[in-house]
């Protein structure tokens, strides 16, 4: 089958970019979307043209490297699927597809479809962990965790940090990503001591990185390849609210002391 692509080409961060038309003539329906781009790139290189840059690594839908917009939808039309796991059999002969990088102030474009998502790493560094030094852990079974809690924590922990939530959100909000980590750690007993500190610090970092705010639209949930639910955002809000309240009270108590 034949696919027509309009791809965002931008040589580097500070250069202007534009949509360029390409055609891939021999697309096999069993190819993955990225394999189709591999074919395009081989053709481009054989013609001496700069291949299209896109991030990808595991190609199994778990590393979170890949991702771009296909006709305005993050990771393309198949729900719960990263673009590396999207196969061409879901498209039709002659389809015209627009490929664009994630768009957000916090995700500057590096080249073509590649963006800089290091803001996510900085948000995790601000508090997305449980502070436990190597060697100081009690026996694994010393902490009993009800199965339901472990399952819910795992639901949230499944986030792959791909950034599709930010890309899909009309406000470029990172709430689903941040909420997922806050929910994962905040649900577990191990995560309780730092629960509110974590919420304050991660939210503050998210604000500083220039992400937008959540307006409860649900576009993030719809494109999330790991089906993370809006519930995690409510959890983040709640923890943040409680944390702010407590921080105030503690500040007041300290003031009197």
């Amino acid at each position: 089958m034949r696919i027509v692509l309009y791809i965002w080409r931008q040589p580097h961060r500070d250069a202007p970019g534009r949509m360029v038309r390409y055609e891939v003539a021999k697309v096999n329906p069993d190819m993955s979307f990225l394999e189709m781009l591999d074919v395009l790139n081989e053709e481009l290189m054989n013609r001496g043209e700069d291949p299209v840059a896109f991030d990808h690594d595991c190609r199994e839908g778990i590393c979170g490297s890949c991702g771009f917009m296909i006709n305005g939808v993050a990771h393309g039309p198949l729900p719960g699927t990263t673009v590396c796991q999207l196969h061409m059999r879901h498209f039709r002969d002659g389809d015209v597809l627009y490929l664009e990088p994630w768009r957000a102030r916090a995700f500057p474009v590096i080249k073509d479809l590649v963006v800089d998502r290091s803001a996510f790493d900085r948000i995790i560094a601000a508090g997305g962990y449980i502070s436990v030094n190597t060697g100081s852990a009690p026996d694994g079974n010393a902490i009993l965790i009800p199965k339901e809690i472990a399952e819910r924590a795992m639901d949230a922990a499944a986030c792959i940090g791909c950034g599709a939530c930010v890309a899909a959100c009309p406000n470029a909000s990172a709430s689903l990503f941040v909420g997922a980590k806050i929910a994962h750690l905040g649900l577990l007993p191990q995560g309780q001591p730092e629960r509110y500190r974590r919420a304050l610090n991660m939210v503050a970092q998210m604000t500083q990185e220039g992400f937008g705010s959540c307006t409860n639209i649900g576009a993030c949930e719809a494109v999330c390849p790991k089906n993370i639910k809006l519930e995690v955002i409510a959890r983040m809000n709640r923890d943040f609210l409680v944390a702010s309240w407590r921080a105030r009270r503690e500040a007041r108590v300290e003031g009197f002391g």
Partner: peptide, 19 residues
């Protein structure tokens, strides 16, 4: 204003969010 700043470049192909 914050949300507008967060997405300075909009998509060529806009798709309505599902909400």
């Amino acid at each position: 204003l914050l949300n507008r700043r967060a997405r300075p470049v909009s998509y060529v192909m806009e798709k309505d969010p599902p909400a």
